[in-house]
Design a protein around this nucleic acid. Structure first.
Lengths: 204, 204
DNA sequence: TGTTCTTCCGAACCAATGTTCAAAACATGG
DNA sequence: CCATGTTTTGAACATTGGTTCGGAAGAACA
């Protein structure tokens, strides 16, 4: 089906994809021409046509910058989730602090609505090991009210820690999931920063 | 900084983003005009200008379809990973079977090279629970030679299962990570389908 | 109540861009 | 060796699409 590309054709495709990723736009024929130092736009044109014939791209005749990548079409919506090493005491509404990196992932794999406010934390320590959340894991959290049994990020003594949100006799508590941490902290008056919705682990 | 958008402006922005996600292209002023039923392109133009002024988009004057979304720029490269419920015996090179869904995620969060061949499996059962891999987790695997200590997907009795790849006295074995499964299967002559590189869990 | 912002019309202008044609050098495989 | 596909030149053409100007009605705000 998908015919093999020549080196030049691959280079042109890489350029298109790279620009599209960086700017969101497809280069025009003249921009392709300039990038590769062609003396004629026809060089760019024939490469585009070759890519189209080999089904590497889909084009809409006549339209400007109308090159589409079949494998990137109809993708789920992708959200960019900031990853914090820790969250300091303040945590003002949109106060960005200690942001280390960013995870981009489609919302259906994440299981959240597109408008949900999400952030991620690098897990430190083994306090939730019995819930199979390990040191170094990235936990993705949503900003909402916790429900019984949720894993939540809470601000305790100026530090953000993961705990299980449990309710006993109508009163909410926070509980570690590790026999060595028999904590059971009243959840009232503690600041719940988010509810865990997903987890990402890297085995490298 | 980012000023609030009106309903109309939000609708235009949503249309731009939706089209960009579906096709990879930004609608032209005339396409915006047609979609909203405007009688003049100036309506589309003024909305674009409003979005630009409120820093919801960045535009390049004079260029065709040159609207960029600040939050989507300079994103890491994103790969689409097919998720299989199971892998049947065949697993011919590019034989797509039982593909249930697709995970789109940036490669740096995944920790793989862009050209690596990756796929994902829904975990069934608790055989790797001591490695904190749970039933229902999605394991992302790379197609490469296993190294000592890697978690691998192997084809055993026509079924794909996750095991730890261990080497004892120079001989490779496969080992479950659950006391109830004291298996130690010679790895030779077994088909290693992939090496685990990441894990994705949904808490919904 | 005036000012600013939003939203829209209609027509026209012109730059950006896709497209075509005729040609040619070069590789590749049957 | 010939047919086919690749890669490139140079100039011109036609369309797409961004932009402008003048005007206007309504909402929001002070």
């Amino acid at each position: 089906m998908a015919l093999a590309l020549t080196q030049k054709q691959q280079a042109v495709l890489d350029f298109l994809k790279s620009e599209h990723r960086k700017t969101g736009l497809i280069p025009s024929t003249r921009e392709i021409q300039a990038h590769f130092g062609f003396a004629s736009q026809t060089a760019a044109m024939s490469h585009l046509r070759a890519l189209e014939r080999k089904e590497a791209v889909i084009r809409i005749p006549g339209k400007a910058r109308a090159v589409m990548f079949p494998d990137e079409m109809d993708r789920e919506e992708i959200v960019d989730i900031p990853v914090y090493g820790s969250i300091a005491a303040g945590m003002g509404e949109d106060q960005v602090q200690d942001q280390e990196s960013c995870v981009s992932i489609d919302i259906s794999s994440l299981g959240v609505r597109g408008n949900a406010k999400t952030f991620a934390l690098k897990v430190r320590g083994e306090s939730m090991i019995d819930a199979h959340i390990c040191d170094g894991d990235t936990v993705i959290l949503e900003f909402r009210e916790p429900r019984k049994g949720d894993v939540v990020a809470a601000l305790i003594d100026g530090e953000t820690t993961l705990k299980r949100y449990v309710v006993e006799k109508g009163k909410p508590y926070l509980q570690a999931e590790n026999e060595l941490y028999p904590d059971l902290i009243p959840a009232r008056e503690l600041i719940i920063q988010g509810v865990m919705v997903a987890l990402l682990r890297n085995s490298c």
